[in-house]
Amino acid sequence: MVKMSNSNTAKDHIVLKDVHKSFGPKHVLNGLNLTVKKGHSMVVIGGSGTGKSVMLKSILGLLHPDSGSILIGGRDVTGMKGAKRDEVLSHFGMLFQGAALFDSLKVWQNVAFGLMQGKGMNAKDAKEIAIEKLHQVGLGSDVGELSPAELSGGMQKRVGLARAIAGDPEIIFFDEPTTGLDPIMADVINDLIVDCVKRLGATTISITHDMASARKIADDISMIYKGQILWQGKAGEVDNSGNAYVDQFIHGRADGPIQMDVFKA
């Protein structure tokens, strides 16, 4: 278990303080601050290239921030590596944008991967749990024997979701969960996310630019722009944020303070 240092940090499950990350001359995160309460569903909205994915990867330790700190349950995980990082990650689940299923493994092996490799569970028990998780995301046992290449995009997302919740994680990240799906399948995925998160009582961060998805799964919404959080509030407050950037983004307007680099002849 991730140790909690005091009551404040127990409430603040994920805290990012003044996080900076650059790639060469490109500054992607510019002093990003974000707090996610335990058991809350935070949705981070923002355009492409604003630093959403880099933020998630920095929390997971896939990227290392240049400066600033990241606390999980009050424990500073910035720059943590090796077995300590593995221990922290054992409390995480992640749904990747493209599902990121392992091509060489069957569907049930994908779902059970973290249980068998990460937690050392035997294949028989792990398979039982994998089938149960597949049922939770609306997929039958027969799907477990297929390879990921035989699944549609929506089914792959559901398998990715089953894999993310297989270890009953305390924290789940969703990276663009509805991108590339038709509106009905996107809504199915949103419902499954809400259902799974409620069932587990997990703390979640989702990144998306799909406002329908954000409204459905969020307790809180943050808007990221140029590597900084420029607005944060309750999901119900997003339509009356009083922030010109948020207004432009949620209404999808080309005109406003957010300028896109579009070449005009």
Partner: peptide, 8 residues
Amino acid sequence: DALVTLST
């Protein structure tokens, strides 16, 4: 990246 998140 998925392998890393699965503690592998």
